[in-house]
Design a protein around this nucleic acid. Sequence first.
DNA 1: CAGAATCCCATCAGATACTG
DNA 2: CAGTATCTGATGGGATTCTG
Lengths: 131, 131
Amino acid sequence: MTVDEPSADRRRAVTEPGFECWGVYSRDCATRRTLARIADKWTILIVGRLSQRACRFGELRRSIEGISSKVLTEHLRDLEADGLIFRTVEPTSPPSVTYELTDLGVSLGRLAISVKDWAEEHADAIHRRPT
Amino acid sequence: MTVDEPSADRRRAVTEPGFECWGVYSRDCATRRTLARIADKWTILIVGRLSQRACRFGELRRSIEGISSKVLTEHLRDLEADGLIFRTVEPTSPPSVTYELTDLGVSLGRLAISVKDWAEEHADAIHRRPT
DNA sequence: CAGAATCCCATCAGATACTG
DNA sequence: CAGTATCTGATGGGATTCTG
């Protein structure tokens, strides 16, 4: 909210009158990239899990059916770089690594749960032709 | 909510104890597919726009910077097939086509706005290394 | 256990051209 | 205006193998 306040001239970049232009609807705005990052199936699932409780890598992987180590690792790295989660390494043998949401992550977690809930509540209403 | 109620045995498909198994976390559950559909950048942007007001094709395309006719068309077709939007054709010349949210779409629209808002409010907090 | 490293392919999506 | 058609390059993501 105290973000990157849209300056008057950025608002004027303009596409359609009546629609704001700063923000996710602007092609090169940082907010568009942020949107692309969070509007992602795996991100929603991972953050949703972590908003239930902190998890270890293996727990996370097994609890999200169908995700591969590779994809999970990539997303965890991105989420970490974005300050949404943090990693704690227990230097035992074998090593134990725990992932946990940051405050920002908790905030996203609430959203992730909303998305998850919507999908589960409305999946039946969505009939897809069998391709 | 009256969806595809998780039967007792489906709950037991089990991955990690303590986590429910029916739903988006299950690999082949319909809810997972629904999640994948709505956890999509373009879908969020399109439904977000349409939740402001009904739009014509060209309006939509111009108001969502960077989307191509092809991608827009594909997403609109999918959203229509899923019962989230409906298409109205004015048989004028040149033709005028209007897209509008269904009730289900309006429901998704609220979610889309939440996602959009989150991205715009927190984009500054997300520092990405310049790749 | 928690990854890193490869290989490889299917799908997504951008650009371009054409049409009723 | 509202698309369709085609081509192609990027890349997301699965499978497999290996390691500290």
